[in-house]
Design a protein around this nucleic acid. Structure first.
Lengths: 225, 225
DNA sequence: CCAACACTTCGACCTTCATCGAACTGTCTG
DNA sequence: CAGACAGTTCGATGAAGGTCGAAGTGTTGG
């Protein structure tokens, strides 16, 4: 008995409603200030500061100073993965928030997961990249093939710059709504940014929803058929 | 704000040390009685009963009456997956138990994860099945090919019987020690049972460790080269 | 039918911790 | 330098919930 790591510390941290609200807000991928997170969680800024200190101390959040603001963000993709898998189980068990917002369908269609595209369109992109052999799976890690490099390069993604980052280029991430994988990692982020740059999609304020324009969605579906 | 399912209820349940100890004990895949779980968690049986009621109510555990005993087990593989992913993050963040047992190396090599084989040997089996095209990944779900069916059939797994179960035949499960996938699902369970049947391996008492015999490990490595 | 056993329920206790007011540190603006 | 602003620290408060003793329910075995 008493084998392996202790999960109760981490789970207890996530288990407080105020903290889980903050974490879910940060799953939008944006870095938020302590004040914004306090409003998001519905607590005063003193309380939020205490929570954020604990989350940072446990290595779940990353803090960045900028003038008189402190920006918090999810520490890494491992943390995001745990949160997404917990979300999946909660959804399946029907532990929904008391008031499910009107944005739910949009959320299932396309949303930001930490810093990449999730939802039905995210899954479709991932499936398409694999079906067309732009990405192959090796040891469950997605790898970009020559044809894949050509595709994203022509799409405007600077692969040389991405290679300089320490982040893995490709990762897969499990989707809570579709229960399927989608593309994470530096390439997932770069592709999402490119969709924004080209005006195919835009973020809705204060939400994880990624709203595709009619034209943008058409082009997206054409590219990832 | 306030989008998606509420993860704080589930996380708070897992976050109590007594409950997480019980859950980790049940990750051995064995069904345990309330009394055994109380000892495992280091609390009285009254306290354990209260915890187990909550875990069952949330759908994390499954309860089975048998005479004057109540056997508890992990509800399904989704729950096991969340626990395993939390374990992985805790291990990476160094949130280890105060006393790491002497069994740690054995645990990394081969252990039971809910009801299938995990650890280095579990990952090796999974990689081998994929490398030899006995299993192919489709939409991130492993599928048994014709050659795979032949292999496991000759090994003594009754595929027709497995097909009758409602459980998915193949699933992948992320490993906390190796951080790679291994095989779960009905086939994962059947293969592990066959290793026990053939005497290749045996379970250590009160532990998740799967101890392979010298001969058994040799045959295992030969089969999944 | 009674005693032993496994477990659940109830109630009381008590620790833990989230919460917020107040005071303090550091930063930007005029 | 003063005032506004963002955030942290400290301390008091109070609610939530883990804990266990005692009593109750259901089961087994003699």
């Amino acid at each position: 008995m008493k084998e392996g790591p202790d999960i109760s510390l981490l789970a207890a941290l996530i288990g407080d409603p105020a903290r889980s609200n903050m974490l879910m807000a940060l799953m939008s991928g944006k870095a938020l200030t302590a004040g914004e997170l306090a409003r998001e969680a519905g607590v005063t800024i003193q309380t939020a500061s205490s929570h954020l200190g604990k989350l940072e101390g446990a290595g779940l959040l990353f803090k960045r100073h900028e003038g008189r603001h402190r920006y918090f963000s999810i520490a890494d993709e491992d943390v995001a993965g745990v949160l997404e898998s917990l979300t999946g189980l909660a959804a399946k068990r029907g532990h929904l928030r008391t008031r499910t917002g009107p944005k739910d369908p949009e959320l299932r269609k396309a949303r930001v997961c930490y810093n990449h595209l999730a939802g039905e369109l995210g899954v479709q992109m991932y499936d398409s990249l694999i079906a067309n052999h732009h990405i192959v799976l090796k040891d469950n890690t997605p790898l970009l093939t020559a044809s894949g490099k050509k595709l994203v390069g022509e799409f405007g993604v600077d692969l040389e710059m991405l290679a300089k980052l320490r982040r893995p280029l490709c990762k897969s991430c499990l989707d809570w709504s579709a229960r399927r994988s989608h593309l994470a990692g530096a390439l997932g982020t770069a592709l999402l940014n490119q969709f924004f740059e080209l005006g195919w999609a835009a973020r809705l304020d204060n939400s994880r929803v990624v709203a595709f324009s009619t034209d943008g969605e058409q082009k997206f579906r054409q590219m990832f058929i």
